[in-house]
């Protein structure tokens, strides 16, 4: 039994209005039997300090990443995780998180690598829910483990690897990191730990659009018109473009991937999760320093 979409007028303007729900919609619908609310944060303990009643937690480090290989969990690993948090293949999943849904978008992107059909984001995430004075609880969520099928991860459509980036030159690249990371002044986000890249700068021809420009007040997504003004008018993306977005480890660029793919409806957007921690340490790949995108190498 499918769960109705949120028909808020703001969402109706997006290319895929079905991927967002409002705080009010969630408050009304969160206890529906075929819906699971998932919290996904940067801070691994934030969920424990208080979460939306009935929500389960999925952590990007400990749940979605493979503990050994730098990669995501595989089909059996994802099935085990889904079963543990009570999600079936036909469950409607609503994800929310801290920092304007930065990590929630990342989790949603991983769910999509496994082709989970109905995954939505709570517009504004955890902060919007709290700002409206809505209920949080520390009560442990009682989960009925589900039986989730083993589905192989499909990396071919929405994920880009370094070789895909090399082949992509000539098509648009979006660098969603901060201005100082883009220019090469530093290799990691201001105020964040350095996860290690040996060189600073950006991938040649990549245009700089820090991810947070897509978020408006209270962390909710900007309207379609506001997003078009940034990505189409200012940056010059065309509705038919194939785009690769990247950041440092692929989390902030998941947010931009979500915007370009679902809110603006570009058909071929991929997230390069290797991102700067890979590119900035790869031997022999081209890098541009400074504030200008620079030219794409001729293949």
């Amino acid at each position: 039994m499918s769960v109705a979409f949120d028909s808020s007028p703001k969402f109706a303007a997006y290319a895929h209005p079905e991927v967002l729900v409002s705080t009010e919609w969630l408050a009304q619908n969160k206890d529906l039997p075929n819906l699971v609310v998932v919290e996904s944060d940067e801070d691994v303990l934030l969920y424990e300090t208080g979460h939306i009643p009935g929500a389960v937690k999925v952590d990007w480090h400990t749940d979605l990443n493979d503990p050994v290989t730098r990669d995501y969990v595989d089909g059996p690993g994802f099935a085990e995780l889904m079963s543990r948090v009570g999600i079936s293949r036909d469950t409607t999943v609503v994800i929310y998180g801290d920092k304007s849904n930065w990590w929630a978008s990342y989790a949603l992107w991983v769910f999509k690598l496994f082709g989970h059909a109905d995954v939505r984001l709570l517009d504004g995430g955890r902060d919007a829910w709290i700002a409206e004075g809505r209920e949080l609880t520390r009560d442990e969520t009682k989960v009925n483990p589900s039986d989730y099928p083993v589905v192989e991860r499909d990396d071919s459509k929405i994920r880009a690897f370094r070789d895909d980036v090399l082949k992509h030159f000539g098509n648009p690249l979006i660098d969603v990191r901060s201005a100082v990371e883009y220019s090469g002044e530093r290799t990691h986000m201001p105020d964040y730990p350095d996860e290690g890249a040996l060189r600073g700068g950006h991938i040649p021809s990549a245009k700089s659009v820090p991810w947070a420009r897509a978020a408006g007040e209270n962390g909710v997504f900007k309207t379609r018109a506001e997003l078009e003004a940034i990505y189409l008018d200012e940056i010059g993306l065309k509705p038919s473009d194939d785009v690769i977005a990247y950041c440092r480890i692929g989390e902030r660029s998941s947010h931009t991937w979500f915007v370009l793919n679902y809110l603006l409806g570009l058909p071929g957007v991929r997230n390069y999760d290797g991102s700067w921690t890979e590119w900035g340490s790869l031997v022999g790949v081209p890098i541009v320093k400074g504030t200008e995108p620079g030219r794409a190498p001729v293949r």
């Binding site: 691994v44 303990l45 952590d59 480090h61 400990t62 730990p193 996860e195």
Partner: peptide, 14 residues
């Protein structure tokens, strides 16, 4: 390590 991930734990050593 298992609960919070090794990367996060490096903050505590720092």
């Amino acid at each position: 390590s298992e609960a919070v991930s090794p990367l996060r734990l490096s903050g505590m050593r720092a």
